[in-house]
Amino acid sequence: MAKWGMVIDLNKCTGCGSCVNSCRMENNVPNVGDKAAQAGRAMDWMQIITEYEGEYPNIRITHIPRPCFQCDNPPCTKVCPVYATFLNEDGLVGQVYNRCIGCRFCMVACPYSAKTFNYSKPDFPEAYEKTLNPDVTRRMNGVVEKCSFCHHRLAIAKDVARFEERDLREEDYQPACAESCPTNAITFGDLDNSDHSVTHLKHSNRAFRLEEELGTEPKVYYLRKEDR
């Protein structure tokens, strides 16, 4: 069983936001508009958290791209009253949009604020409509959604591998954010497979996970930023 995970090198991340945007395109994440975004209702699945240290001009900025951590022990799934969010057979935390009752308990329970809620009916401008990804469902008003590690790509990659009668390779399944990162800060693969580069990276002495002490077992590792 593959254990899909991600290693994000904070040394390499420039905070350009291409992961955020490629994710939006890939997953049909609705653009909520300025007013709603200012009210705290922006819906990015991948979000860049910026940490500032020191005082200007001696300031140090760290950009932390934050997808869903697909925890092995997710605090969000056990509070869902209707099994609309669950740990699926690929070890990813799934969302069932058609079953979600919109109680937002999972959002409250997630210590990483990884979930967003559709406060209004998703509205795609006409030009945008043509670029929507047919592999990903458009969500309805009143349900919770979050990063899926581009789960639809895994489904396709599995089909292709089965058709070609071979095992899944690292390059077969890459989420949009990892693919689009211009500095290769995001590495994606099977954390248990020594052929995949994430396995080596996660053992780096710079590797850490956010809020690890909560026991949620996130599958996203970060490599600490170092001054050079």
Partner: peptide
Amino acid sequence: LGRPDRVLNV
């Protein structure tokens, strides 16, 4: 609820 129409899912 965001979807009160689905409350019976509970």
